[in-house]
C-alpha cells in the first residue's frame, strides 16, 4: 500500500510471542534476524516478572536469540525505578530470580508491597502479611495485572488475579507499572527517538500488548500464539492494526508494508 506511513521502531513482546518457556516459536529466530537487517531500532518489552534482566537474556540467548541487555525493557525495571522514586523499602512478592533486580534496595521493615508473578509467595501466610501492610496504609505496586499466561502445561494464573484480590481486601488501588500502562510504553519509547505513531508493538496479549500500545498512538499487531485464544481480536476497539498467525508472519507483514 503506497499510502502506508513508514514505521521507525519495533517493540516486541517476549513470552508467548517469540518463545514459550525454553522453546522458541518456530521460525522466530530467523524472523528476528530478517527484521534486524531492515532496522536496528528494536526493543523487547516484557511483563515476564519471574526473571531478572540477566536471567532473561541468558535464556533467550540459550534458545538462539541474539538480544542485548539494553534492548530489554521489563516491568521489573519499571517497578524498581518506581520504588526508588518513592523512597520505599519493599516487601517483594517475587520469585528469587526476579529479586536480583532489587538486590541493592533495602527491604528491612517494609513500607510498601511489590507484587509480581510469584507462585512461591502466593500462599496464605505471605498474602496475609502483604494484606496487613497495605491495610496499614502502605502502597501496593503491581509489576503488571495480567489475568493469566501460557505455560507449557496450559494457561496459568497471572499476578493480576492476586493483585485484584489484595485490592478488594484493602480497598486500595495498586499502582501498576508494567504493560498495558501508558507510562510503561512512553518510558520504553524514550530512547527510540520516534513518536508513538511511528512505532509498532507485536504481542500475543490483546489487551496488555495491542490495546496498551494503541492507546498511546502506536500500532498493535496481535499474534495467534502464546496466550492467544480464538476471538481475542474482537475484545478490543479499535481492533488490532493487524492479526498474524505468528511472529514470523508479523515480520513478513512489517517488511512488506510498514518498514
Amino acid at each position: 500500500m503506497a499510502t502506508m506511513s513508514r514505521l521507525r521502531a519495533v517493540l516486541i513482546d517476549l513470552s508467548g510471542t517469540i518463545h514459550i518457556e525454553d522453546a522458541a516459536i518456530p521460525g522466530a529466530v530467523a524472523a528476528l534476524q530478517r527484521l534486524r537487517e531492515r532496522t536496528t531500532n528494536i526493543k523487547f518489552v516484557t511483563n515476564t516478572t519471574k526473571e531478572s534482566m540477566t536471567t532473561l537474556r541468558n535464556r533467550l540467548s540459550r534458545i538462539g536469540f541474539d538480544i542485548k541487555q539494553n534492548e530489554i525493557f521489563s516491568s521489573l525495571t519499571a517497578a524498581r525505578n518506581k520504588v526508588q522514586e518513592m523512597g520505599c523499602r519493599p516487601m517483594l512478592l517475587l520469585q528469587d530470580s526476579a529479586k536480583e533486580d532489587f538486590k541493592d534496595i533495602c527491604t528491612d521493615d517494609p513500607n510498601c508491597v511489590v507484587v509480581g508473578l510469584s507462585p512461591d509467595s502466593f500462599n496464605y501466610r505471605t498474602l496475609n502479611q502483604a494484606f496487613r501492610l497495605i491495610l496499614d496504609g502502605h502502597p501496593l505496586i503491581a509489576i503488571h495485572k495480567a489475568k493469566y499466561f501460557k505455560r507449557q502445561d496450559g494457561l496459568a494464573l497471572g499476578p493480576g488475579a492476586f493483585v485484584e484480590g489484595l485490592e478488594y481486601a484493602t480497598g486500595v488501588r495498586a499502582t501498576v507499572v508494567g504493560k498495558p500502562e501508558r507510562a510503561f510504553y512512553q518510558e520504553a519509547l524514550k530512547t527510540m527517538s520516534c513518536v508513538p505513531e511511528e512505532a509498532v508493538m507485536i504481542g500475543d496479549d490483546v489487551e496488555g500488548d495491542v490495546q496498551g500500545a494503541q492507546t498511546i498512538g502506536m500500532k498493535g499487531f496481535l499474534v495467534k500464539t502464546g496466550k492467544y485464544r480464538l476471538g481475542d481480536e474482537e475484545k478490543i476497539s479499535p481492533p488490532p492494526e493487524a492479526i498474524c498467525e505468528d511472529f514470523p508472519a508479523a515480520v513478513e507483514l512489517l517488511l512488506k508494508e510498514y518498514l
Binding site: 496475609n128 489475568k147 493480576g160 485484584e164 484480590g165 489484595l166
Partner: peptide, 19 residues
C-alpha cells in the same frame, strides 16, 4: 488477634482471571 484474608479476595481473584 490478627486480621486474616477471608474468601472474598480469592473469589475476586478468580472472577478477574476468568472474567
Amino acid at each position: 488477634g490478627e486480621l486474616m484474608l477471608d474468601v472474598g479476595p480469592f473469589t475476586k481473584a478468580l472472577e478477574y482471571a476468568v472474567r
